[in-house]
Design a binder for these strands. Sequence first.
DNA 1: ATTCTCACA
DNA 2: TGTGAGAA
Length: 117
Amino acid sequence: MVRRELRRDLAVLPMSVVRELTGLSDRQIRYYDQQGLIEPHRGAGKQRRFSLDDVDRLLEIADYLDAGYSISEIHEVDAKKQRREAEKVDPDDVNMRHMLADELLKIGRFNNGQRKF
DNA sequence: ATTCTCACA
DNA sequence: TGTGAGAA
């Protein structure tokens, strides 16, 4: 039996669902899209279709923003992330970066309580 | 009914 | 970022 799992990379979620799942306004979601932070697929009528990965990405973006990062700074982080992804193919380094990123976000959240968790 | 783009008394 | 207009 092939292990049939949930495909978090399939873009099948409409705005309404993503809005609920992230707590973001569709205005914000479209804005992050324009800024190139996410590239959801398009369906009939150019309507955006998001994947669960996109939802995670959106939450990540919201966290960075709450932590005080600017859109451009988030792009910097992405760029830096890709460069290392290209060079060092060290799996341990990848995990370490994720851990550091999480810590940065936690610190950011404590430095400005705006998020309504 | 929903979502999209564009523009701002 | 919000909001409203007009189209799809």
